[in-house]
Design a protein around this nucleic acid. Structure first.
Lengths: 234, 234
DNA sequence: ACAAAAGTGTTGAGAGTACACCCATGC
DNA sequence: GCATGGGTGTACTCTCAACACTTTTGT
């Protein structure tokens, strides 16, 4: 804040916008990067798909609101969530001024509980690469979220936030390939991810499926997530 | 937004927070990275320094509000400005719920017009490395802004947004050294910045000062600002 | 034994880093 | 002519990128 305009009037005299949080919930489903959307039941945009979200309550922080929305939609807590951007064009909601703080979350698909008709809202997963028509400016928000996710994948190790607790390197590589939309070299991928020392072996092997069983890895909770970027200056 | 909670009540029924924008205004003054602060005249935190900001008006976008605040404080338009983060802890303002969308701006010092007692608010420049006590959570916002500025310097070329239209490579290097807080090698710096092709020679030379006159450069407006980072994966 | 996926090394190219001297100008 | 800052090149190291075969298991 700042409030250093002629300050003898107080905040309550200003007309206030509504503030919501929207949570872009990513998961890997069926070898695809998908996002959870809800079908709106009331105008505006009744029957149109939208990013889950809701009003920020007076006694909760923005991140608490985002975590609450995420839990309401997926039953999941304790997953990766990060503030994305705040969208506040004056007429992005045709009814009234609504400013939304967008978050994005990475949820392992196996952690999601189906909540059938939770508050009777229809929800569904959609491929990020084949989206329906979206309410408000939500197409823009999703586009920005994908950009940010890809960007983060390139210099951090958030990929396994989308995988179960234990996973094989092939599964991890596959996740990266789906999100980045390109093939990666297996040997270079393994060398790079292992040398970054964010993973550790579980000792167990994945027995299902054909072929040779693969070592299962887990994320090292003590690892530093950020990988040094190529700096423009030394 | 999203508004897909039981939606038969409308937004106007929700208690709404106030929304402000705060603008962290960076400039290089006297071989130092400085930030513009305003002294608050009214409680809470009367007499304490704070980041300039103000309420978002109903008919302006968030960025418009930030640009307006910046212009009110410095008289400057057309400078680098970027959304930083949105801060919304419930009691960050003790009076009432205030959510602030923080921006940061890079302003060349020679562009700033002194606006003596513009709205009679006392403003002053402070070194980022020697800050006074600050109102609200503004210390946290400044800390985050510095982190982001340094980070951006490392992989983009925003440095010259703090310099006049034409500048020498030594001046640019000096700016980087001040902000990053470390010495850089002159030959490597020059090679790197020139090979990134974001600058072009003006043809003119800087004649003031002692020693050999230095070539003046300008930013190439057609240049791509982003420099490729070291990717974790190919 | 064969199908399927896991796992493993090397080489060449390009970028990063460290480092010391000559050049143009004003006084 | 000397003080001041401007401007330049090279060698070593490290990371990146491209590339193909062997191993382990189930059937």
């Amino acid at each position: 804040m700042g409030h250093n305009m002629p300050e003898n009037y107080d905040a309550t005299k200003f007309e206030r916008p509504s503030v919501t949080v929207d949570v872009v919930i990513f998961s890997l489903v069926d070898n695809d990067l998908q996002v959870l959307l809800v079908k709106r039941k009331y105008p505006p945009f009744a029957g149109v798909w939208a990013i889950p979200g809701g009003f920020v309550r007076m006694e909760e922080s923005l991140e608490d609101a985002a975590v609450r929305e995420l839990a309401e939609e997926t039953g999941v807590t304790d997953v990766y969530i990060e503030q994305l951007y705040t969208f506040g064009a004056p007429h992005r909601d045709p009814r009234t001024r609504v400013i939304t703080v967008a978050y994005f979350a990475l949820v392992p698909h196996d952690a999601i509980q189906h909540r059938p008709g939770d508050d009777a809202a229809e929800t569904a997963w959609f491929s990020m690469f084949d989206l329906p028509e979206l309410a408000f400016d939500h197409a823009q928000i999703l586009s920005y979220a994908l950009q940010r996710l890809r960007y983060k994948l390139e210099y951090t190790a958030v990929g396994f936030e989308l995988l179960p607790d234990a996973f094989t390197l092939s599964e991890l590589q596959h996740a990266y390939e789906i999100i980045l939309g390109e093939q990666l070299d297996k040997r270079n991928f393994r060398r790079k991810i292992l040398s970054s020392e964010v993973l550790e072996e579980t000792g167990r092997k994945k027995k299902e499926g054909e072929g040779r069983p693969a070592m299962l890895y887990r994320y090292r909770k003590d690892a530093v997530a950020e990988v040094k970027t190529r700096r423009l200056f030394p």
